[in-house]
Design a protein around this nucleic acid. Structure first.
Lengths: 200, 200, 200, 200
DNA sequence: TATTAATCGAGACGGTACGTCCGGTCTTCCA
DNA sequence: TGGAAGACCGGACGTACCGTCTCGATTAATA
């Protein structure tokens, strides 16, 4: 009667699910999607291939679930210095991007997007959007404070800030340590309150 | 003896190169990088695997060449309207990004970067950097013209413009048609010549 | 405490044993030993694998029991006509041999003999020897009766009678319906009482 | 034009075919049909599973071909002593039957008969019938010689002689060394020329 | 004109991984 | 305790590609 009625039979070992996913994440990080073998995952998780297949339909589903289980850490600094806050956020993002194989997950997501739309969907929900929301929220609050320009296109600004790290990485395989400051310096005139120009 | 000396033996069928690349592009578009098999390419091009390998070192080289051949390397519009030129360039980029499976190869590149560094290297050289150079060159010339702000950080600006498309795609799986204009509007105050502020 | 003490707990469903054997026989007949899977048996018998294993040690034991249950252990005709009795016995044997898949289990037994000596052992005990004993016993009694030759090598005779069916089957995949009579006719001079030859 | 036109492409390594079959026969003999793994065959033959599958459709086909490639040795003694000749033939047969795993092949054939009728067919043609024919031919010649009884049912006699070894093996897993003589002694009165009984 | 060197089609081959099927054992709950 | 249900380990199955190889047939430039 209860909705929690235990299904008949031996229950699945709940630790195994997690063990498989942990192994998947590690291998994915170390060897990339192509280097991800079900067998390696099974062995790393102390189980066997058929058992992995009992829980995940295949390689893609496995990677999907592994990535879906990841999350970005919680909100960072929220001081009254908007510039410092943005720099902090971008530095945090930079560590994620430049971490060894940090872009592998993203790559897998993009490569599999058409085959496994779910993967991209969850990746967006769990990893991409939270960061965007945090930045956008901080920009919003700064606008309300009068620290940033009133008519600012927050989405565009957020996207440029974040995107600049992707693009910089793609251009050279790295992102300089001072990139957050540099980007912010460059963008600043476009987001800071307009100087009271005589033009007005 | 001359450097243009025809090598002995039967010359390669020049149409075959193109046929293989055409087939590659089609399969890449239909099935993505993962679905790209040398055998399928060979069959679609009316030839066989070894012949494909005679010309391309492997799957990555094949895909890279195929995609490189898609990019119009020609300089795009180069009018005296810097804003229009940038919009044109970004629109061109947008079509590449939003094309079906447009990002899947990029995804593979990222996912495999550590396994196949060459792939990433060639991808950067052939696809990423040319576009960056074109944009940067246009910004430079505009600075010289006085159309853009003198001290402008060209690399940062270029990176934000391009990166905004990546980030926008990642956020929602699409890039609105008016995104180029919107981004340029947002960035404009940061790259336009400084108004003569009373500050001075 | 008495040896007939009912063991505690739920008693075994006695019908299940038979249901499992019936299912086994059917699958054995339809798909042969190789096609016999415990799971299929369990499903056909309306039960599950572990339950089957509760009663039968494995595939071999299951098949052995199923086949053993097919053999009518009852003595066959035992009239005072030795020839008729032998023909009856051989006819009975012939139906077992020519039954669809009738020899496939024997084949498995032979093929696996070294891997699963138990299987061969039980096969001999339960299926081969009983028939041999029946025939030998009948020959013995006939010798005592004076219906058959006194010094007759009963084992050799038994073996030839039975073996002729194996060999005939192996030669052509079938055993003619009149084979029992024919064999008996051929062997008769060797087992019948010696005519009073002038030699003596 | 010629019927021996070489098919295009790299020709199959003819030694590999034989190597695979040799390995198959050995494993079949050592471990039986159930212990026969494609992988083991491949490794023993110094190749890989896919290559084995390139030549043989599967396990059954492989075993079929392996067995089909076997033959019984050529005719044995053919003296003017019919009894000695038959004993020689049966002794030869006995070594085949009692050789370690000598019955494994036969078992496989019987077990797979319904799934792979070809296997049984070739086994009969190559292994079973030649021996039968040799014995029958010797019996025939002895009948013509007057060494054996004129009206003798040669097929029945042949079948009993051979079959007695099968049946003896099945009964006890072995065939005594003196079995050929013993069988022949037992059968002799039925195949020897009739004594000139006064009965006639 | 014969030779030589390369291309090209065709397919074999060694590998590696895939996803599936069974066998046999176990764990859990219900009767 | 029996029995249903299903998880689990292990081993093998047959298949798909990859990248390399070995052939024969073709096609030019060279001797």
């Amino acid at each position: 009667m209860s909705s929690t009625a235990r299904p008949a039979g031996r229950p699945r070992d709940p630790e195994l699910d997690e063990g498989i996913l942990v192994a998947t994440r590690q291998i994915l990080a170390e060897r990339g999607y192509r280097g991800l073998t079900i067998d390696a995952v099974a062995r790393a998780a102390g189980t066997t291939r058929p058992t992995v297949y009992l829980r995940f339909a295949g390689k893609e589903a496995l990677a999907t679930s592994a990535i879906a289980g990841m999350t970005v850490d919680d909100p960072l600094s929220d001081t009254d210095d908007i510039r410092a806050d943005l720099v902090a956020e971008l530095r945090h993002f930079r560590t994620a991007v430049t971490r060894p194989h940090g872009m592998s997950f993203l790559g897998t997501v993009l490569a599999e997007e058409h085959l496994t739309p779910d993967l991209a969907k969850r990746f967006r929900e769990r990893l991409v959007l939270p960061r965007r929301r945090r930045i956008a929220a901080r920009l919003d609050s700064a606008i309300r404070d009068g620290t940033l320009r009133p008519g600012l296109d927050v989405e565009a600004a957020t996207t440029m800030l974040i995107g600049s790290l992707y693009a910089r990485y793609l251009a050279g395989g790295e992102v300089p340590a001072d990139w957050p400051e540099r980007i912010l310096d460059s963008l600043w005139p476009a987001i800071a309150p307009e100087p009271k120009t005589p033009k007005g």
